[in-house]
Design a protein around this nucleic acid. Structure first.
Lengths: 220, 220, 220, 220
DNA sequence: AATGAATGAGAATTCATTCAT
DNA sequence: AATGAATGAATTCTCATTCAT
């Protein structure tokens, strides 16, 4: 009995908190950070405005939680590839393809996380943090490639950032344009970016190993 | 007399309008988009708050005008290089160096244009517009290079975006970190990015032609 | 023309500010500090809530201004007596009578200023400040009396505070009780307090010099 | 069994109620009225927020109960002295010394009861009620003294209030100033107040009988 | 009887926009 | 054309109170 009751209560708590975070993510995805006012979040989550503060000490914390929910998974997926099997060249291509496919499917969500500036200072700090995390994965692959003699000698910290920047600009930024339909051009786009990056990094043998993950940006 | 009077009035309007835009730019440059409230703009421009609305239908339009003023110059400078003299390889290097040097000196201004949050949705749209404009310049150079057989065959629309993305990520994003002092590392950073881009674009002969413009991002 | 216009504008500013302060005082007088919310003040002053912030940087500042308006006059009146003509004994009696008469007429206003605790820390600091100011006036008279050999030797800082406390408790505190009608008993009450204080201070010759000011607590 | 069970339940209710009031008093003592939110009270009393409302119809009532608990003890201690043994003069001095010592030691508690802002209007009313109770004790002593021919003829209702006011002003008000350390000056301060009151009341023979109670204001 | 999550009415404050002068 | 005081809706956040369990 007690057990059940506890179960129920915990589930309810989780539900409300989850609903609030989900509502926040939906609002960010739909209308950007701007749209995620406490009132709007509460309305979307079908709770009272005050209830948001039962689960989060401040709006800033809520936005960070939403951000983390979106970003952490993405970083983890790329990190798994970066530290996984395959030659550095294979891993580089796989990372690019995975990042690209997921972003192209996640659309606005990817834009919000990677590219859309947020008013909250806290969020901006988080964004820089996660961009660094993404960059680190590319740096890791590049360093492996240099050590293996597979890639050109280079400052991997700079070129790692350049790789993420190229991806962000070529894939994510266009997503903000709601009329843009990337689906049809996806394969060519990915190929083109891979070729570009391979040249940039100086990959000696191009790999054609397919990406590990192809599901959507987030919700997996 | 009538003619003159009209002249005078129009000039006054222009002066006030110019003062308002200038004030807005100064505020954005100094304190970011958040600092550019109508009250602050009016105070800085030494006009009444209501007078701003004689020249601009809304704050959004004013910010867009200010944004355009900042961004158009930068695009023009890069465009001048892109359509100027020199081999495509030379122009590519010059464009990168100029973009980088100006951004690293302009700091806050470059950051505002490329990356800083603005809670006006309109600004976000403009930001994307000008990013496309920048990309176009790189596309132009790359197309020239491909035609001349100097660059690898590639989809210049994609790789042009990749070049801008690399620049934005490697240069502008770190500017958000106020403690970051880019000055000391500027030359190596630029070299490294140029090398990266040259490899990425597949430049056959590297040029060492100096950049045309070295002044600050803005005020030139 | 210009002169007139300036006149008008300034008058309007003053009117609004005055209206806000007056409304604040009225609310404090009627319902205590608690009743003086920004919304209530604005409603009472017939301005918009935001307009309050045209004239005061914060609620705290507004309450302080209202407090000062009430308190400064009272302190000045007592100070004039304390530093005025007459023997120390005469001045002591006059100060007591004036303080008492004004408080008994000002009723709730006197209570708010002297005795009613306020939520705003700033106000509490002001209250202590003005109580010290009142005490200083009594200390001044007592010191004069001691020097003249007219009063018993005593620690005037302590007994000055005791005099104010006696007045506050005997006169002001009952005013919070809305059903209390002090008017009828005023003369005896004042006499009784004077006799008490004269004994406490050890006045050798009692004076019957009438009080200088008899008007209401505030609005004079 | 039934009886016992009822007993048990009632005891539990009492325990919970006691715990709630105790928690409230502790919070008021520690952090003032502001610290005594329902949430904080419940947390401190280790009950659920809703449970507070099983025992008290409103927060206001709870605060009043806590107030009464604090104030009644103090009044009782002074009342015991007022109605106890000794000459009126002795009792007057003892009452003053006891009041002063307890207040100076209880600090925050005395301050809360006598002077601290509470944004419950009900508390203000109670505060006035208990001030009257304190006054009554002094009135009782003074009446005894007058009857015994030991004190000057006077309106004891007025002078009783004056005595409490003197005590409050000279002792309690400074307690609001957190930096004030009363301990060192306590004996002289008490002597000075006693001398003042003795003169004010017209005590014919000063007593040196020590105070009955010296323990802290509260927890005795 | 006890719980504690949920409520929702307020609180202070900000600021783009308007409009009488 | 220019002013700038006034507006009032929107913001985040608090907390006494309620009620389904």
């Amino acid at each position: 009995m007690v057990y059940r009751r506890t179960e129920y209560v915990e589930q309810k708590i989780d539900n409300a908190k989850t609903a609030i975070v989900t509502a926040t993510i939906r609002l960010i995805t739909t209308g950007g950070w701007r749209a995620a006012s406490i009132a709007a979040v509460a309305r979307t989550a079908r709770v009272a405005a005050g209830s948001v503060y039962l689960h989060f000490p401040s709006k800033s914390q809520l936005l960070c939680e939403a951000y983390r929910r979106i970003a952490e998974l993405e970083v983890k997926i790329i990190a798994d590839i970066a530290h996984g099997e395959g030659t550095p060249g294979e891993r580089l291509s796989a990372a690019i393809e995975t990042f690209a496919r997921r972003a192209l499917r996640g659309r606005r969500k990817a834009y919000a996380v990677i590219a859309e500036p947020a008013d909250e200072a806290e969020i901006e700090r988080l964004r820089l943090h996660y961009r660094k995390q993404f960059v680190s994965q590319f740096v890791h692959i590049i360093d492996d490639g240099i050590r293996a003699g597979e890639f050109t000698q280079q400052d991997s910290n700079v070129t790692g950032a350049c790789v993420l920047g190229a991806l962000a600009e070529a894939i994510v930024v266009p997503l903000a344009d709601e009329s843009y339909d990337p689906v049809s051009r996806t394969p060519q786009l990915i190929c083109e970016i891979q070729a570009y990056v391979n040249r940039a990094i100086g990959v000696k043998r191009t790999s054609s190993r397919p990406a590990i993950q192809e599901n959507e940006f987030q919700e997996s």
